[in-house]
Write a protein that binds this DNA or RNA. Structure first.
Lengths: 199, 199
DNA sequence: TTCAAACATGAAACTTGATTCATGTTTCAA
DNA sequence: TTGAAACATGAATCAAGTTTCATGTTTGAA
C-alpha cells in the first residue's frame, strides 16, 4: 500500500483546506528563500493560521519539505507525460520532453529550487526523485533501441546524462536567464543529443 | 589586481599555519556534514584552536565557505588541465577531461559537496564556479570547430549540456555508487557525446 | 440536537549556535 | 634584546527559530 502523502491526514473539510493552505504557503516560502532562511512562522503567516496549527499536520519543518519534493516529482512527471503523450518517435518524444522540462522549470521556479535543495535537506527524497526519473528514462530508451529508433548503448549512463543535461540547461536557461527562447535551447540541445559532436 | 583569497591575510608563519588548519578542518566538516549541520566549534575543535581564533581569520561562517568554493574551482581546473595537457584532439581531450572529473569527484567528495551546496549558501560563488567552466568549455569547443575536429553548433548550449552531464554522472557514479569503473562510465558517456542517440 | 473527536490558538519554553571581548601570549623587525 | 603588532583563548552574550501546551472553538455522525 502506497502512502498518499506525508503528515497527518485531516478528517474534516476544514482540516483538508488548512493543510492545503500550509503546503501552498510552504512552497512559496521555501521556494523563494530556501529551507534554512524560511521559518515556520513565515509559512503559518502566509497560510493565515497560528503556529501551533502547523504541528497538527506536520511533525516537523523537514516533513513538509519532503512532501513538497514528492509533490514536485508528481507534478513534473505528469506535466511532461501530458506533453509527450501520443508521440511515436522516441527521439521526438525526448525532444518535446526536454522542451517541456525547461518550460516547467520556468513556470515552477519554486518547486525546482526545492528539489535541488533537497539534496542537502532530505537526501533520500532527492535520490528517490532522480531515480524514478532515471528508471523511466532507461526503460524508454531500452524499448526505443528494440524498435530500432536509436542506437544500442549503455542506457543507464545515457539516462543520467540526459537528466544532468536537462537539469543544467533548465537552471541556466530556465531559471537564471530566460533570454533564449525554450525552443532555441531545445533545438540546439537536440542537435547535440541526436548527433553528438563528431563531424 | 586579483585578491588571492578571502579572509584576513596572516602576517606570521604561525598565522599562516593556523589559517590553513582552519581551512582544512572546514573542508572536512562542511564536506561531510553540510554547511548548516556543522558548527564553528566543530571546525575549531578539528583545527585544534579556540573559537575566537576563527574570527581572527574569517568574518563569518559564510566567508570560509566561499573560500572553499573558489578553492574547489582552482583545484578542479588544475587537476583536469594537468590530465589533458598535450592532447591534440578535442574529442579525446573531452573524454580524458570527463574521466578526470569523475575520478576527481571520487577523490574529493568533500569539496564536490561543498560546491553543490554553495547553490544554497552562496549563489554568486556557485554561478561563478560554473560560468568559469562554461566559458572555458565554450572557447575550447569554438576552436575545435574551427579546426574541423567537431561539427559546428551552439557551443554555449553544448558547454552547459556537458557540464550538467558531467556533474550528474559524477554524482551518480562518482559519489553515490562507485561500483562502475570510471573508465566504463567514461566510455559509455563518450559514445553518446560523440555520436548521439541516432541510429 | 449533541458531544466526542478534530481542529485552532499563540505566548512561552527551550535549543541551538554564531559572534564578541577582555585578557593573555608569541612573533619578529629594528 | 625589546616592544608593538599579531595571534590565541573560551566563557559569556545574544539572537534566532522550532516546538510545546493549556485553553478554547468547530465539525459532523449518530
Amino acid at each position: 500500500m502506497q502512502i498518499a502523502s506525508e503528515g497527518k491526514t485531516p478528517k474534516t473539510k476544514r482540516g483538508i483546506k488548512t493543510k492545503a493552505k500550509l503546503l501552498e504557503a510552504a512552497e512559496i516560502e521555501f521556494g523563494s528563500r530556501g529551507f534554512h532562511e524560511c521559518m515556520i512562522a513565515d509559512i503559518t503567516r502566509r497560510a493565515g493560521v497560528a503556529m501551533g496549527t502547523f504541528y497538527i499536520y506536520y511533525e516537523s519543518k523537514e516533513e513538509i519539505f519532503r512532501e513538497l519534493v514528492s509533490h514536485m516529482g508528481r507534478l513534473t512527471r505528469s506535466y511532461i507525460a501530458q506533453k509527450i503523450s501520443g508521440i511515436e518517435s522516441r527521439l521526438e518524444a525526448e525532444k518535446q520532453g526536454l522542451k517541456a522540462y525547461i518550460e516547467f522549470a520556468r513556470e515552477n521556479k519554486n518547486l525546482y529550487r526545492i528539489v535541488m535543495e533537497s539534496q542537502f535537506v532530505a537526501l533520500d527524497a532527492f535520490k528517490e526523485y532522480y531515480h524514478v526519473f532515471a528508471n523511466a528514462y532507461e526503460t524508454n530508451l531500452n524499448s526505443s533501441v528494440e524498435k530500432g529508433q536509436i542506437r544500442a548503448g549503455n542506457n543507464e549512463i545515457r539516462a543520467w546524462s540526459l537528466i544532468g543535461l536537462s537539469t543544467y540547461l533548465g537552471l541556466r536557461f530556465g531559471i537564471w536567464d530566460e533570454q533564449m527562447p525554450a525552443q532555441e535551447v531545445t533545438d540546439a540541445a537536440f542537435d547535440f543529443i541526436e548527433n553528438g559532436l563528431k563531424p
